[in-house]
């Protein structure tokens, strides 16, 4: 295992961390309009993610920084190639931040309902865009000899990518709903609980379609799984985690259910990553132009420095992330200091 392989694993873990953490607050946003109806209920939703969503989003920023440092060629190709798509990502991220922060700063119902809509739309939009981007990474993009991607925004919206986008929305909605069952109480909690089976079922159906589409159309990934068989344990484990989450939900044990749902998201990302390894970006133009773990990585010196930084820094990150979640454990309420 080379240093760049180590960083591939770490990068996948950071992305998984981001999707698990920001995933549930995106899910809360997706359910914000359909499930929470009164002003108090919506404030409860916002307060449930209030102290943590900003820290969750940092994982994406970290993923960006790490990609820049350890796989600069992928960072450059991906972000410039998906230019308008990432602009939309930035747009919805900014709108989402602003909506969360500004919504409750004025009393007017019109002000609040306008920002509620923005928060919901931006959460749905962000989940969709991330899914579409991930779908394109799985299916490959036209990379030329210089490593640049020749693709327009509309080209990215393939049926497969859109399917992955919809799956991502359903996945986060289910994940966020489990989180909300933990954080709410009373009538609101019952309503979230009632919606949960439908959300998980929708995700299961959509995700099955994604798997079928991959087997049918993404031969590269299918072949990898057929060649080496053992990686099949990751998608299998994801399925087990989903069933376990479902079971825990039915028994009313939401914290284990949330852990299982988190594990499932992580395992799905790992499954995708194994499918494309050793590629990071697959070129549909010519396999020789693939950006791989070895040809796109920084020099060993940089990889070592980055590893030292991660080894020093990440324990602190995990320590105070856990601390914050611990301090803000318990049900979310509405009071003067909050959203």
């Amino acid at each position: 295992m080379t240093l760049s392989d180590v960083w591939f694993v770490l990068f996948v873990l950071i992305v998984a961390g981001y999707l698990i953490l920001d995933g549930f607050d995106m899910g809360v946003g997706i359910l914000h309009l359909p499930v929470a109806r009164t002003d108090t209920e919506r404030r409860t939703f916002l307060n449930s993610i209030g102290p943590v969503w900003d820290g969750n989003e940092v994982w994406l920023v970290l993923a960006g920084g790490v990609l820049f440092a350890v796989f600069p060629l992928v960072y450059a190709s991906l972000f410039s190639g998906f230019y308008l798509a990432f602009m939309l990502v930035l747009l919805v991220m900014i709108l989402r931040t602003v909506a969360i922060e500004f919504r409750s700063k004025e009393q007017s119902p019109r002000w609040r309902s306008a920002w509620d809509t923005v928060f919901w739309a931006a959460s749905v939009g962000l989940a969709t865009l991330l899914g579409v981007a991930f779908g394109n990474v799985l299916s490959g993009v036209p990379i030329n000899a210089d490593g640049n991607i020749t693709v327009s925004l509309l080209d990215l919206l393939t049926p497969f990518a859109l399917l992955v986008g919809a799956t991502t929305v359903a996945m986060f909605a289910g994940h966020g709903a489990i989180y909300l069952v933990m954080k709410t109480e009373g009538e609101l909690q019952e309503r979230v609980t009632r919606a949960l089976p439908r959300l998980l079922a929708a995700f299961f159906v959509l995700n099955t379609l994604v798997v079928v589409a991959m087997v049918l159309f993404q031969q590269q990934i299918t072949e990898r799984y057929l060649d080496e068989v053992w990686p099949i344990i990751f998608p299998a484990a994801a399925l087990v985690a989903l069933i376990a989450a479902w079971t825990f939900v039915r028994r009313g044990r939401t914290f284990p259910a949330f852990v299982c749902s988190s594990a499932m998201i992580g395992l799905l990302i790992v499954s995708g990553a194994i499918g494309i390894y050793p590629n990071l970006l697959i070129s549909t133009t010519d396999p020789a132009y693939n950006l791989t773990v070895s040809n796109a990585a920084s020099a060993d010196n940089t990889l070592t420095v980055a590893l030292i930084i991660a080894v020093i820094g990440m324990p602190f990150v995990l320590l105070y992330t856990t601390g914050v979640y611990y301090i803000f454990r318990g049900k979310a309420t509405v009071d003067s200091d909050g959203y």
Binding site: L62, G65, L67, F68
Partner: peptide, 11 residues
């Protein structure tokens, strides 16, 4: 440059 940005994220 990238490793400095990554360090900014971590620290």
């Amino acid at each position: 440059f990238g490793s400095l940005l990554a360090a900014e994220g971590v620290f």
